[in-house]
Design a protein around this nucleic acid. Structure first.
Lengths: 346, 346
DNA sequence: TTGAAAGCGGTACCAG
DNA sequence: CTGGTACCGCTTTCAA
C-alpha cells in the first residue's frame, strides 16, 4: 500500500555513480563538493523527487526540524489561536520545518516523544502545570506573550504591545466622550490578562481618570458577567460610560448585560474588547476591538525560535530577548458616539 | 545545552550485563526472553528512567506514528475546527501517535516531508487543489465529512448525521410554530453545505412545507447577508417565520438582518444555525444550534485512520467505510416561541 | 534463551 | 574534491 519506498540518498548516489556522502554533502552544502557535481546531484535529486528523511537526520544527532506547538488548554478566543496557529505553520513551512501539536496534558516523556527542536508556547498560564514543565525542561522554549510571574522565562518571547494598544483604545474612548471607563478583567494568571489590567490602570492614573476594574472568573459564566455588568451600570454613584472587555467571548455578555440595565452599546455606552475576533464585525452593533495580528504573531514566534536555535550552536547562547508585535485598533460602531444625559462634562 | 544524553537500550544492557537485543526483546515483548531476565531488565529500565526513542524505533520500522492534519483554508467556524483539532490530538496521544499540521498549500513533496503514516482531512472542499492532491496521493486519507462530488474518496470518512440532525431541528422549529422556513446556505462545495441543504429540502418535501433556500457567497460579506435576509423577510408573499443559518458566523448577520426588517429572533422569528459555537450561548438572544460534537468527531477521525492503517498490513486492505457521529440539538431562546400576527395557521 | 550482526537513512570525520 | 566508514538507537533475523 505504501507507495514504493521513498527516494533515498543511496538511490541518487547509484544514479549519479558516487557515494552517499558526496550526495549528502552536495545537498546539505556542508562538505566541499565541486560546483558541477553539486548541480548534477541536485538535478537528479529533483528529478527523483528526493525528500530528506527527517527522522534519519535527527537520529544522527542534528535537528529534527520539528516545532512543538502548545495552545492554552481552555481557550476562549478560538479564532485568535487558530490564526496564530496558521501563522506558525506558515512560517515553519517557509523554514522547512514542521509543526507538531502538543497534547493538553504534557507528561515528562510525552514531550520527548515529539523529538522537537524547540517549543512555541502560546499564552503560558502560571496555573498550568504543563507550561511549567515545559519551561523547566531541556528544550528551548519561545513563549507567545511573556511568562506571568511565577513561571521561569523561556529563551525568548514574542509579545504584543498591550500597553500601547490599550492606551490607544482608551484615548479613542476618551475622545468619544468616555469619562468613567471600566475594565471587565478575567481572572487568569496569564501575562496578557495581567498586562491589560495594568495598562488600563496606568492609563487611568496618567489621565486623572477614575477607572473601575470588574474582575470575573475565567472561563466566565455568561449570567455572571451579565449580572455583574448590569449591577455596575446601575450603581449610579459614578456612572460608567465605557466598558472594555477582556476577551471576545465576554464582550457579548457585556453588551447584553448593559441592555438589561437599559443601556445600548454604541449609543449611551461605549463598549470595546481587547481581543478581536471575526464575529465582532457581525454583531449588532459591531464591536470595537484590538486586532492582535494573530497570524503575524504566530509567524514571529517561529522566527524567534529559529534565532534561538541558531544561536544555540554558537559558544555563547543568545540572551533572552523579546520581539514586539504591533497591535491595531479596529474602530467599530460600538464606540462611534456617546450620547449622554444630564451628566456633567467634567 | 541539551540535557545529558537520554538513557538508551545500550545503557540498560551494560548495566544488566546483556546485549541490546535482549533488552529490546524484554521491553517490546517480541522475542523469547526468560521471565526472570525480563523482570530484571524492566526493573533497571524503570530505575534508569528509560524512554524509548521513537524516532529510532520508527526509522527501523515503516510506521512513523505521525498523523498529518489538514484544516480547511478559509475557516469560518473557528471553534469547531479548534475543538476537532484538540480531539485529534487527544486521541492520537492515546494511540502513541503525534499530530503534525499541514500547511494551507500542500505542494507534492511538502506533504512527504512530514513522513506521516496517514492524513486526516477535515471538510474537503472540491475547489481546493490541495485536497485533491492529498486524495490522489499515496498516503491513506481519512476525511472528516465525506468528499463532495468531484473528489476521489479517501479510505474512510467520519461523518455527522446532518440529515437526521437537520430533521430534528426542523421538527423543533415546526413544533414551535414555524410554517415557512428558510435556509441561508453558503455556496461552498463542501459536503456538509451540500448535505445540509438537501436535508432541508427533503424535510420540507416530506412535511408538505414550502421552504426557501437563500444562497450566499462564502465567506459571506456581512452586509450582503443582512441585506438578503431583510429583503427575504420583507417579500411578504409567503412570510418567512424561521431561518436556519448555514454557519455560526452567518447567523449573527441573520439576526441583525432580521432586525433591519423589524423582526426579532426568538419572538416573531425563529432563528437557528447548523454549527454550534461558544459564542452562540452569549448572544442576545442565545441561538439554537446543532452541536456537531467536534471533539468527539476529531477523535473518531483518528480511530478511523488507525483502522485503515492496521488493515493496510493485512493482505486485503479494508474497504471504504463511514463512521457516523451523532449530533445534538441545543435548544436556546432564539427558537423559544413564535408570536405571530394575523397569519393563517395553515 | 541469549548473542551477534545487519540494516533503517543520514551525517561527519578521515583518508586518499 | 570524493570515497570509505563509523555511528545515531532500535528492531529483527539468524546462530550459538
Amino acid at each position: 500500500m505504501h507507495d514504493h519506498r521513498a527516494v533515498t540518498l543511496q538511490d541518487i548516489a547509484d544514479r549519479v555513480g558516487v557515494t552517499r556522502s558526496t550526495v549528502s554533502n552536495a545537498i546539505t552544502g556542508n562538505g566541499r563538493v565541486s560546483e558541477s557535481m553539486k548541480e548534477h546531484v541536485l538535478a537528479v535529486a529533483r528529478e527523483l523527487g528526493y525528500q530528506p528523511n527527517t527522522l534519519a537526520r535527527r537520529l544522527r544527532g542534528s535537528r529534527t526540524g520539528i516545532i512543538a506547538l502548545r495552545l492554552p488548554r481552555h481557550t476562549s478566543s478560538m479564532s485568535y489561536y487558530m490564526e496564530a496557529t496558521f501563522g506558525v505553520v506558515e512560517e515553519a513551512e517557509r523554514s522547512g520545518m514542521v509543526v507538531s501539536l502538543i497534547p493538553a496534558d504534557v507528561r515528562p516523556g510525552n514531550l520527548q516523544r515529539l523529538h522537537a527542536d524547540g517549543v512555541v508556547l502560546l499564552d503560558p498560564d502560571a496555573d498550568d502545570p504543563s507550561a511549567h514543565a515545559m519551561l523547566t525542561g531541556t528544550l528551548p522554549v519561545v513563549t507567545g506573550e511573556p511568562v506571568p510571574p511565577g513561571l521561569p522565562p523561556g529563551r525568548a518571547a514574542v509579545v504584543s504591545d498591550h500597553r500601547a494598544a490599550v492606551a490607544e483604545l482608551m484615548d479613542h474612548l476618551a475622545e468619544r466622550g468616555a469619562r468613567r471607563p471600566a475594565l471587565v478583567s478575567p481572572e487568569v494568571r496569564s501575562h496578557w490578562a495581567i498586562s491589560v489590567r495594568s495598562a488600563f490602570e496606568r492609563w487611568c492614573r496618567d489621565n486623572d481618570t477614575v477607572g473601575q476594574v470588574l474582575p470575573i472568573r475565567h472561563p466566565a459564566p455568561p449570567d455572571e458577567v451579565r449580572a455583574a455588568v448590569a449591577e455596575l451600570l446601575r450603581a449610579s454613584a459614578s456612572p460608567v460610560d465605557a466598558i472594555v472587555a477582556g476577551s471576545d467571548g465576554v464582550v457579548l455578555n457585556v453588551v447584553t448585560g448593559a441592555e438589561q440595565a437599559g443601556r445600548r452599546a454604541g449609543t449611551d455606552l461605549l463598549v470595546a474588547t481587547v481581543v478581536d475576533s471575526d464575529i465582532l464585525r457581525f454583531t449588532n452593533p459591531p464591536i470595537t476591538a484590538l486586532d492582535l495580528r494573530a497570524r503575524e504573531f504566530g509567524r514571529r514566534c517561529v522566527q524567534a525560535l529559529r534565532t534561538v536555535l541558531e544561536s544555540g550552536d554558537a559558544a555563547e547562547p543568545a540572551p533572552y530577548f523579546q520581539d514586539v508585535v504591533p497591535i491595531a485598533l479596529c474602530r467599530r460602531e460600538s464606540t462611534s458616539r456617546l450620547l449622554r444625559g444630564c451628566k456633567h462634562d467634567h
